[in-house]
Structure formats: C-alpha cells, structure tokens
C-alpha cells in the first residue's frame, strides 16, 4: 500500500512546516490538516485516511485529523476545447464523442493547509 509511504511524507511536511515556525523544536497541537487528492493521482482517499491514522499515532501530533479534498479529473477536448469531468464522461468528449483529450486537473497530491494551535504563551 503506497498510501503508507505517502502518509509518512505528509507527516514529514507537517513537522517541517511547524518546526520552521518554532526554531526547530516542535510545539503545540494540530487539530487538522488538508490534503488535496486528485482522482488521477492513483491514491485511494480511504486508504490514505487509514494510513494516516496509523502514522499520526507515532508522530508528535497524534490528534491531527486529516481532511481530504477530492479533486475530480478534468479534461480538455483537443478538438473542440470543451472542458469536462472525466468520471462523468465515459472517457469521451460530451460534444464530439470519441476524440483525444488532455487531462488538466486531477493529478494533485499536495498538502494545502495545516491548522496549528500554537501553545506558546
């Protein structure tokens, strides 16, 4: 399950971002963080959630709740330039039928937001 390695990478990013803001020494709590997962990223959101729950237990922010923002794959028809959602389209352009298209959105796999409760008085 590659989601486990990805969850470890997310953990690293969280530690880096917070460490950077408090001189390397982690402090505070992370109530939640948001990760964007494209439907073409090859990542299963449920599997990532599960992997995250295993990973966070062992990290400095065991409370961190993972919110996943799912990004549907958006394609652009090469013939008529119509934009359409791949999942809703049966793999073809709704206007001109079977024709080549390119995928312009849906490969995302990125940390977008970390909510950090800084407890330094």
């Amino acid at each position: 399950m590659h989601e486990l390695s990805l969850a470890c990478s997310i953990q690293e990013i969280v530690e880096q971002e917070i460490g950077r803001r408090c001189g390397g020494k982690l402090r505070g709590r992370v109530p939640s963080l948001t990760v964007r997962v494209g439907s073409m990223s090859g990542v299963e959101p449920e599997a990532l959630s599960f992997a995250w729950d295993v990973t966070r237990e062992q990290g400095p922010f065991p409370e961190a709740h993972l919110e996943i923002e799912k990004i549907p794959a958006r394609a652009l028809c090469n013939r008529c330039s119509r934009a359409f959602l791949l999942e809703e389209s049966n793999g073809e352009c709704p206007s001109c039928g079977v024709c080549p298209f390119r995928i312009v959105e849906g490969r995302e796999l990125e940390v977008r937001r970390i909510v950090w409760e800084d407890d330094e008085s």
């Binding site: 971002e17 803001r21 505070g28 109530p31 950090w116 800084d118 407890d119």
Partner: peptide
C-alpha cells in the same frame, strides 16, 4: 486545558516532492 493561538498555514506542498 488552555488553548493556544490558532494559526492556519496555507501551503502548496507536493507530497511526493522528496521522491521527485
């Protein structure tokens, strides 16, 4: 338990950046 200051960090960091 007293709560601290909430800070929202908006980022755009690829999860596979290290591998890349």
């Amino acid at each position: 338990m007293n709560t601290g200051k909430i800070r929202v960090l908006d980022l755009q960091r690829s999860v596979t950046a290290k591998n890349d």
